[in-house]
Write a protein that binds this DNA or RNA. Structure first.
Length: 427
RNA sequence: UCCUGGGUAGCUCAACUAGGUAGAGCGGUCGGCUGUUAACCGAUUGGUUGGGGGUUCGAGUCCCCCCCCAGGAGCCA
């Protein structure tokens, strides 16, 4: 079975530390698989070529024991990763107790209980290597394009989009909430640096229990001063295309390990197909969904729409009542806002949500009142519209959903090292 | 929160339309095997059937309550 390889040169003298993940022993010849880092290498041991003590160690070593080995590298097509190490020495650092996770089948409840150990498994390592490549590609994209990274706070005094779904905590006698978006803190920073982004965990206390939701998830959010709605859509297209292509290139082996068919991913190049919310509602009605203009578009509806295309689908011009208070109204229709969502193909749903922001002070005050939001908490935010106000736009991309799409994994819980799910915070 | 399905050995499951003191594979352990790939062959180990109460001569199986898990919905990234 394919795994991430360790690069081995033919004839090279090698000393390595690692963990034994598999052992096949036959009388006088043994094969062991050693996990060194993300990668794995096969060890070959012949009884007559080893010190007696080393052979005894090989016989008694248990799965997931930590060991130190010495040997000679050999390129050999019979080895699972194309190369192997012929052992000259084998030392046990720690003899592992019986490891709960075996190469055979396990249920998801058992695996989630043992998430801290499950991380060592072949596919889980591949998923997290892919996540790492995605995160790096995001930073590289923004760095190359002159963005400044702004680390927004996690403890916040007020809601970005209403308080009902926030985790509340005590802040020296005051109420504080775990951030559900860095956006409000990004907008002031855009006035300082013009192009900014934040990258960090966000928290939603929604009691949702689906394959697309976590209580704690990571989001990257760019915000750009003087950027209008059309340019925002272009930014989203270029950004998403860049990060997908970069991951396909840099994480090619990890994608092979998980046997991901990347045909559709390769098609992620600008421009993306685009429909308005109103057109989406018409399409859904024709498909038989019981939906009316003004309703939000749910998971099944998103999947139905994304089936029309192999590329991410952009939906624009949503009704203002289903979107956040800070979104700029459509000049051609005040009931709509200049908002856009990007729906991933293959049923992975919304991965980007963004908009042009309101830059007029009076309009923003009015919208805060209409949504019954606590005005005091937003005074600092309103300041942006008092001191050199400027048109600006931004979006947020969900890391876990994007990794889920790239890897083809069904549930986002496997795209993050330690998922936080409804009523589940262990390990 | 709601709907549906489920909790039996360390793990994955079986024990039937009909209540009769639980069984297999994997893992572990011991032995065998010089090119294995989730190796193979033989032996062996393993259980208060999620918890509590009830019906019954007798409950894994039937009834009630509780706990936990999974899948889905709403909401969202």
């Amino acid at each position: 079975m394919k795994d991430l390889p360790v690069v081995i040169e033919d004839g090279q003298e090698i000393e390595l530390e690692g963990w034994i993940i598999h052992k096949r022993i036959s009388g006088k010849l043994a094969f062991l698989d050693l996990r060194v880092g993300p990668g794995v290498v096969q060890l070959v041991a012949s009884k007559k070529e080893l010190p007696a003590e080393a052979w005894q160690n090989i016989k008694k070593v248990t799965l997931e024991s930590s060991v130190k080995i010495g040997g000679i590298g050999k390129v050999d097509s019979r080895a699972p990763t194309g190369a192997e190490i012929h052992l000259k020495d084998f030392e046990i650092i720690h003899l592992s107790e019986e490891f709960p996770i075996t190469p055979k089948e396990h249920g998801i409840a058992f695996l989630m209980e043992h998430r801290h150990l499950w991380l060592r498994s072949r596919k889980q390592r591949a998923y997290l290597v892919i996540r790492n490549e995605l995160e790096q590609s995001i930073h590289d994209f923004f760095y190359k394009n002159g963005f400044i990274r702004i680390d927004s706070p996690i403890l916040t005094p007020a809601a970005c989009e209403g308080t009902s779904t926030l985790f509340e905590t005590d802040y020296f006698g005051e109420k504080a909430y775990l951030s559900q978006s860095g956006q409000l803190y990004l907008e002031p920073a855009a006035a300082a640096f013009r192009k900014v982004y934040c990258f960090g965990p966000t928290f939603r206390a929604e009691k949702s229990k689906t394959r697309r939701h976590l209580m704690e998830f990571w989001m990257v959010e760019p915000e750009v001063a003087f950027m209008k709605f059309e340019e925002l859509i272009k930014l989203a297209e270029e950004f998403l295309s860049y990060i997908i292509q970069r991951v396909l290139e840099k994480a090619a082996i990890a994608l092979e390990v998980i046997e991901r068919d990347t045909t559709i991913l390769e098609k992620t190049t600008p421009p993306f197909p685009r429909i308005t919310y109103t057109e989406a509602i018409e399409t859904l009605k024709n498909k038989g969904f019981p939906i009316e203009w003004g309703d939000d578009i749910g998971g099944d509806e998103e999947t139905a729409l994304s089936q029309e295309t192999d590329k991410p689908l952009i939906i624009t011009h949503y009704p203002k009542k289903v979107k956040a208070f800070y979104m700029q109204p459509n000049p051609d229709n005040p009931e709509e806002v200049l908002a856009m969502d990007v729906i991933a193909p293959e049923g992975y749903g919304e991965i980007i949500g963004g908009s042009e922001r309101i830059n007029d002070l009076d309009l923003l005050k009015k919208r805060i009142e209409e949504e019954n939001l606590p005005r005091e908490a937003f005074e600092w935010y309103l300041d942006i519209r008092k001191f050199g106000s400027f048109p600006h736009s931004g979006f947020g991309l969900g890391i876990e959903r994007t990794v889920a799409w790239i890897t083809g994994v069904k549930h986002v819980r496997e795209t993050i090292p330690y998922p936080r799910m409804l009523y589940k915070i262990y390990p």
